[in-house]
């Protein structure tokens, strides 16, 4: 089942254009959104969250247009960025207390479960947390209100290999509970490790959107790793 669909997004900036971006996200799967820095990953994600205004195109969640159902749809989405943290000097407990009031789907049991699973100390402030823990706090918030789709913008950037590995394992656990994950990254090994589907963006255009295995069959040369394939594709050679 399609949980989110991006149709023909166009956003023009001076010097960069997000060019007719379209793809679908299937429910219960992890989709890796890969592209080099400046390829248009964050712009696409911002458009998916109505944080920027596109020149044309639309975004649908479970068949409903975002524009007309924004508040309701946002109850089903969790967002985290590896580069932004909220209220760095407020205690996690205080942030949670405010956030829970916005969701009629907030589940105290789920909150206690994920707080324990991610080993989050509520008395700390985001300033006192590592980058990986900040992402976990956002995941905890999203999972506590039963978000069906997690949209994560470079969640592993800035993490050491151990924390990255731990986070990717968490993605698997979350997926097993029926939650879909869409995460952007420029780290190819993250995709290799946990993505079911790949969406590859380059210079503002989607070059491929398919299952990871199909992607490898289509684009990889014999004996080539996914990383080698991506580097070759980014270099302009699109032939397997």
């Amino acid at each position: 089942m399609t949980i989110a669909e991006v149709r023909n997004l166009v956003k023009r900036y001076p010097g960069f254009t997000l060019n007719n971006v379209s793809f679908q996200l299937e429910s219960g799967r992890i989709t890796g959104f890969i592209g080099r820095n400046g390829a248009g990953k964050t712009t696409t994600i911002k458009a998916m969250l109505n944080m920027i205004h596109t020149d044309s195109g639309s975004v649908y969640y479970s068949g409903r247009p975002l524009e007309e159902n924004e508040a309701d749809i946002k109850k089903q989405i969790g967002y985290s960025s590896g580069t932004i943290s909220w209220y760095p000097r407020r205690k996690i407990r205080d942030i949670v207390e405010i956030v829970r009031a916005f969701y009629d789907t907030w589940d105290e049991e789920a909150y206690a479960k994920y707080r324990e699973l991610f080993a989050i100390d509520e008395s700390k402030t985001p300033n006192e947390l590592s980058e990986g823990m900040k992402v976990k706090v956002n995941l905890m918030l999203a999972l506590s209100h039963h978000a069906k789709l997690l949209i994560l913008d470079e969640p592993t950037s800035g993490l050491d290999p151990f924390s990255r590995n731990e986070l990717l394992e968490i993605f698997e656990e979350v997926k097993n509970e029926g939650v879909s994950i869409f995460f952007s990254t420029h780290i190819i090994s993250d995709i290799e490790k946990c993505a079911d589907d790949i969406i590859y963006i380059s210079k503002g255009s989607i070059l491929a959107a398919m299952e990871k295995e199909v992607f490898i069959q289509t684009y990889s040369k014999e004996g080539e790793s996914l990383e080698d394939t991506m580097l070759r594709l980014e270099g302009g050679d699109h032939h397997a």
Binding site: L49, A71, K74, W86, P88, F102
Partner: peptide, 16 residues
């Protein structure tokens, strides 16, 4: 502004 409050608020399930 330092706390990214506006982006945080926009992500909440409310109208802009």
């Amino acid at each position: 502004c330092e706390a990214n409050d506006i982006v945080f608020s926009v992500l909440l399930p409310i109208a802009k």
